[in-house]
């Protein structure tokens, strides 16, 4: 860990000012990711700007029937909020599939969006890593990569985004509200996380001097058909090998909307709206789910050790869709997958 200054800010503008003045400054929310990375010397901020006093915890319904969630709302606050439980159960389920109760009690929405990859090279400063130290190389590409990306990876980085929450947000459709020195803007979740390309050090399109104020969920009807299915190396407390978030509306056995996002497979939550279209107007059948899943993974590419994830992802999507269609979403406490 490197020495740093600690600043507890009282206003959003104060935070933005400091971020603009000091490129090495970092915001601190729950700290469950940032402090870990500092302990491993992966993150070396010069100043920690503690934003926990800022009024960014509120969860409120928007006039158009969506939901606005403050950046500092904890993962637990969100998962157990009545509106989320009723109208966005997919989000609640995905959050509860991640980490542990203790972590969820402090981890925040913004922190979760910005959590960094779990690639074990990235975490170990004794090894090269383009994401951590640009230009040093990517040992995962020819090394231990069984849990690395099968979609959208680059020569320079094959890491995945580890969040569960974000996979649900991608399926639901979410705007990220951010503020910088020039005012506020919103970024759709699809454009928020990036693919690594030749600048893997950049996880998102958020600017260094911008702060996330909150997120806005697309309006959603009550009692949707949904499921969040996470496959991992043990039954709990592990990051996804692959996960699938599925949202369906079905009228008379025919699919009217289908939103599906994949986690653990790419540098960002993976969603392919073009592929989703083929499900619309078709019966909710296994054959159709199969076909869709194959389309979703059409452009997947295996590394030396992670080829199994392609078929696993395909099957996980199919099962999540089946669970959604039959209104039997995956339980996150009973580890039996039905």
């Amino acid at each position: 860990m490197r020495r740093f200054e600690y600043l507890r800010v009282a206003s959003i503008n104060q935070a933005i000012e400091r971020l603009s003045d000091e490129p090495g400054a970092k915001l601190l929310a729950g700290g469950t990711n940032l402090v870990d990375l500092m302990k491993y010397d992966v993150a070396t901020p010069t100043t920690i700007i503690d934003i926990n006093d800022l009024p960014l915890r509120e969860i409120s319904e928007t006039s158009d029937g969506g939901l606005r969630i403050g950046a500092l709302a904890t993962n637990s606050d969100v998962a157990f909020h009545p509106v989320v439980e009723n109208r966005y159960p997919l989000l609640a389920s995905a959050i509860l599939a991640g980490a542990s109760a203790q972590l969820r009690n402090v981890a925040t929405v913004a922190g979760n969006l910005l959590q960094r990859t779990r690639c074990s090279y990235f975490y170990d400063v004794m090894t090269p890593c383009n994401k951590r130290t640009p230009g040093t190389g990517c040992p995962a590409r020819n090394g231990l990569n069984r849990n690395h990306a099968i979609l959208g990876a680059s020569q320079d980085c094959v890491a995945t985004h580890p969040s569960d929450m974000c996979v649900a947000l991608a399926a639901i459709g979410t705007m990220i509200i951010v503020q910088g020195p020039n005012g506020a803007r919103s970024i759709s979740l699809a454009d928020f996380h990036r693919l690594p390309g030749d600048t893997p050090e950049q996880d998102t399109t958020l600017q260094n001097n911008e702060i996330i104020l909150g997120i806005e969920l697309t309006p959603a009807p009550e009692f949707q058909r949904y499921s969040y299915l996470k496959i991992r190396d043990r039954l709990s407390y592990a990051f996804a090998l692959v996960s699938a978030a599925a949202l369906l509306t079905i009228d008379d056995g025919v699919i009217s909307t289908a939103h599906v996002a994949l986690g653990g497979v790419a540098h960002k939550p993976w969603r392919d709206t073009a592929a989703e279209v083929v499900l619309v107007g078709r019966p909710a059948s296994r054959g159709n789910f199969d076909q869709f899943a194959s389309m979703l993974l059409l452009r997947s590419d295996a590394l030396s050790e992670n080829g199994f994830k392609i078929e696993l992802a395909r099957r996980t999507v199919v099962r999540a869709l089946e669970q959604a269609a039959s209104r039997t979403p995956q339980s996150q406490s009973d580890k039996h997958i039905h």
């Binding site: 779990r118 074990s120 090279y121 975490y123 170990d124 090894t127 090394g143 231990l144 190396d233 043990r234 039954l235 709990s236 407390y237 592990a238 990051f239 580890k335």
Partner: peptide, 15 residues
């Protein structure tokens, strides 16, 4: 490279 409990998995309660 299994230098933390996130990489070196032991059974959790659920297992």
């Amino acid at each position: 490279m299994a230098h933390s409990f996130a990489d070196y998995h032991i059974p959790s309660n659920a297992d």
